[in-house]
Amino acid sequence: MKENEKTFEEAISELEEVVKKLENGDLPLDESIELFQKGLELSRCCSKKLDEVEKKISRLIESEDGDIIETAFDPAGAAED
């Protein structure tokens, strides 16, 4: 889907533009319905992007061959100083 390739910032500022256009202009019906659909898609896309971020906190270690190994990171462990 095209909307999904956008970054969150692009999507939300585009949504803002769509809303402004709808609020200001006495647009032809077809066009306003089309914009409305686009706006819905953008708003859905924004919400989705917010949920799409990774949630895991991990620790990266470089192995002997230079590869990165991802291990669990316990934030509570960071408190033990």
Binding site: L15, E23, L29, S32, L50
Partner: peptide, 22 residues
Amino acid sequence: LVSRISDLHTRLRNSVMKNLDL
């Protein structure tokens, strides 16, 4: 961000409804 999105969403609906009413 969530409230910004929902605000925009509401405005989107309202503006289309208003447009239709007009």
